[in-house]
Amino acid sequence: MSEKLTTALCGMSLSSPVLSASGCYGYGREFDKFYDLRLLGAVVVKGITLRPRHGNAGRRLVETPAGLINSIGLENPGVEGFIAEELPFLREKGVPVIVNISGNTAEEYSELARRLDGVPGVSMLEVNISCPNVKQGGMAFGATCESAAGVTRLVRRHTALPLTVKLSPNVTDIASIAKSVEEEGADCISLINTLLGMAIDVDTKRPVLNNTFGGLSGPAVKPIALRMVWQVAGAVSVPIIGMGGISSWQDAAEFILAGALCVAVGTANLLNPYAIPEICIGLEEYVTRQGASSIRELVGSARA
């Protein structure tokens, strides 16, 4: 990789602005078999909770036109399992790791932050206040300015790690939520998590998912995600990790032009294991064609 894609996020130097989106990349092992993980600016790992979770019962996936509804339910080995079983692999690969954390209660978030603080190999925390697939907590924390600010404040108190707060798109005014987490010390903002959606089986006449609703991702959500990144970029001064439907370098470039410093690729990894390297190559050529020396020069250019 050339210098054209290198960037700096919250004090970390990244080889590229392209990251993995949580839950669509596991802990990196599967993709390491396809390419060198150091191509990514950072691996954002599957959402981690205090204790292991088995995930949701029943069917977990529904395909929609250019989209995917998931109801995984944060299946993960818990923070101790993650530190013991998964983190050493990523450390050895030499790629920065952003740990996505989720709690049922505000206290669980702060406990997770405390546990991960100072753990070698962890570069940053992504506070997921936007998971639509768990019964308690999750998205509820991202639903109002007060609750989003409250979680951010608590987590901030328990870690010296840089914090990014991952926002839910299932709100009326995402910019004001972004502002309130910035005020409480978020160093960065990630958006968007999945949009609440559902599907009904016309034969059984019942919702397909046991939880009725699931999270919609993929190309179908991109215009909404891009609009929200644009709104948040206009409201805060901290950097933004933009995501939602990014499948090509053009998609990634749109988010960067809208004001995202970094982008994260989720669902596209599930369709093409080389999605991220292909996006990196395309972005690099784009920077060259634009006569720029670095992707950083293009951040927010569409806002001029």
């Binding site: 839950g23 669509c24 990349y25 596991g26 599967e30 993709f31 599957k46 995930g55 069917r59 977990r60 996936l61 529904v62 995917l68 998931n70 995984i72 299946e75 990894n269 599930l270 369709l271 294991p273």
Partner: peptide, 13 residues
């Protein structure tokens, strides 16, 4: 029902 086929998305439980 399955997406990635690789053990990444945890959808085909």
């Amino acid at each position: 029902h399955m997406a990635c086929g690789l053990g990444v998305c945890l959808g085909c439980s």
